[in-house]
Write a protein that binds this DNA or RNA. Sequence first.
DNA 1: AGGCGTTATGCACAATGATATATAACGATC
DNA 2: GATCGTTATATATCATTGTGCATAACGCCT
Lengths: 123, 123
Amino acid sequence: MPRYPGLTLRILAPGAAAMGPGKADLLERIARTGSISAAAREMDMSYRRAWQLVESMNTAFTGPLVTTATGGKRGGGAEVTPLGLDLLARFRKMELSASKAIAADLKRFSARLRPARAKRRKP
Amino acid sequence: MPRYPGLTLRILAPGAAAMGPGKADLLERIARTGSISAAAREMDMSYRRAWQLVESMNTAFTGPLVTTATGGKRGGGAEVTPLGLDLLARFRKMELSASKAIAADLKRFSARLRPARAKRRKP
DNA sequence: AGGCGTTATGCACAATGATATATAACGATC
DNA sequence: GATCGTTATATATCATTGTGCATAACGCCT
């Protein structure tokens, strides 16, 4: 479920996706909440998956994007490093500039899209 | 397995992805080979899946992107419609302009990527 | 008529992805 | 010291996705 109507942007590392809408969103929520599990709850995602995404990000780059601590005041927590914040901001910027760059073509593209049929919601 | 090092672009319809690297690639190969199965073979993809992708594209837009025929000289075949060719070209153009738009940021982004580890190939 | 390669489709199975559940360690706070 | 919420991890289960046959219809060609 990408959150950016119109387009989806992914940055690829040689083997896998290094950054995309999901990881960026997760990163953003971790930065705001200071917790992986809180971020996961917000996104309706299992903690396990969120943690795996964090781990994959931390190993994909030259340094960790998220640091964590166990125990303590709130039971522990997570923090987005300066590198993480930088990459996140840069990714958002790329989303925006890409979106602007394709806006004209996207318009003509969308004009050819058949109007959506009704879709069932999770009951 | 996206084929465009650096970034992946996807165009989203309300419910699902209307166009992305995979569908664009498939479309291109169908146009060149004149056959869904040949295109699928080239991509090492099951005919079934290729056909499903074609069907999803044909129903996602205002008209079919691929027309097909059974029987005949080569046993049948598929053709990419003018609409399909137009959308394909437009998508490639969007990929290119998006790529250019983010090039500078992508460079700094990639500089933070850890060099890839060796990865096992299908034997 | 029979063979051939392709489209079109169904169904069983494998592979993958994600969830759910359980458990341990941790450290501030009460 | 007991409690609490969190990180970290393993295991089992469920859901989704893709593949692998199998089959039928089709129309040109020899």
